[in-house]
Design a protein around this nucleic acid. Structure first.
Lengths: 211, 211
DNA sequence: TAGATTGTTAATCGATTAACAATC
DNA sequence: TAGATTGTTAATCGATTAACAATC
């Protein structure tokens, strides 16, 4: 099931499709056409159909897509049909937000099961229901929980060290919030979310107003 | 100074270049070649040079780039040479993290000057040094502060309403953290950061491990 | 059958990368 | 001058979109 044939850009759109399909299902819509999806998603109908071709056939020509069926099949493809275990390193502002957010947001399927911080003062207190543990316990806890996903929310200077620990302990899927470029082996998937860059990017547009 | 000729992809890389140049400056490096930057940024030297061509000539052939000069000129191009005023709507988990983060992170240049929430219980309390005001005060405060950037961190269901208010009050640059697609006029620049999508995207890779 | 909408191929568009002439 | 590295053009690559045959 390892499709390196499917482009990243396609993968990133799948959760978007799922979100809209969930909405339609909630409204009781049973059949939907790619054209109807176009407006709701803000993407071309053609793109939606093209994206689906990477995974098989999902619709009925002349009719459209059965919402519930499409939803279930796409969920499975995305891995959204079952919960995956994540650990969070760093209990600062962003880490805290993510931890709380994760407890609330039930349909996300990424379940944070442990939170770590280097600060002794934070160790022992909780975010959501989860007690913060010392970073020293990382290897031990990874072994215990066997988490699929590691979320890095430590300051930039600590990010390399933490990443090394995660990789040494065989973690393969990482989400990095630290504002640094991390070098990783080929068999690890790293996704970056850089809030500082997002904010800075706005500056350009606020001085060069769009068209 | 409105260059719709410069591709979005290039703009998004500029803050990345700045970050590395700042590091080099701090280390006392005076001259740097595109080749040396390649490893530090994780992008091709050619791409760096190509990106710069949209804005002029910055280096000396056979020598390289003068770090301080390049830094200053790029900062100006990005709008990073002066502070811009932002307002934040929504004081939930993400809003709180952003607010706190913004007070700490001085070199970001996006300065949150006001925070709003609809919840009467939150109104009056503070994030960082900033007092939370009721959403009703938005039009009045926009008029007073004349902010360039609006940050939307409200729940999905409230995002459309807030966005309409911001646009009605002439705001042109928006950052949206709510997990919804927002339809906006052509003359508004909207950038989306969707943490749920980022997390969900990881699920695919955690079941289809990379190569 | 006529109308509709999919799945897929082909055309277009844009972004990245390689190559190299210009020049310090 | 020889060596180095830029700025820029041309080639490549990949992603989006248009078009249409397949088919319900």
């Amino acid at each position: 099931m390892k499709d390196k044939t499917v482009p990243d850009s396609v993968i990133r759109r799948l959760p978007l499709y799922l979100r809209v399909l969930e909405e339609l299902k909630a409204k009781g819509t049973e059949i939907v056409s790619s054209q109807q999806l176009e407006d709701r998603i803000g993407l071309k109908a053609t793109q939606f159909r093209k994206d689906l071709t990477y995974f098989g056939e999902f619709g009925v020509r002349g009719v459209g897509y059965e919402v519930d069926d499409l939803l279930n099949r796409l969920k499975k493809i995305c891995g959204l049909n079952e919960e995956k275990t994540a650990i969070l390193i760093g209990a600062g502002h962003i880490g805290t937000a993510l931890g709380n957010f994760n407890q609330v947001n039930n349909n996300c399927k990424v379940r944070i099961k442990a939170i770590f911080d280097k600060d002794e003062d934070k160790v022992g207190s909780t975010i959501g229901q989860i007690e913060i543990q010392h970073t020293d316990k990382l290897p031990q806890m990874i072994d215990e929980l066997d988490p699929q996903i590691g979320i890095i929310a430590v300051p930039a200077r600590a990010a390399h060290e933490i990443t090394d620990i995660l990789i040494e302990n065989d973690m393969k899927v990482l989400l990095n919030f630290a504002p640094v470029h991390l070098d990783i082996p080929d068999d690890v998937y790293l996704q970056g979310v850089d809030l500082t860059l997002e904010l800075q990017n706005l500056l350009y547009y606020s001085q060069n107003v769009v068209e």
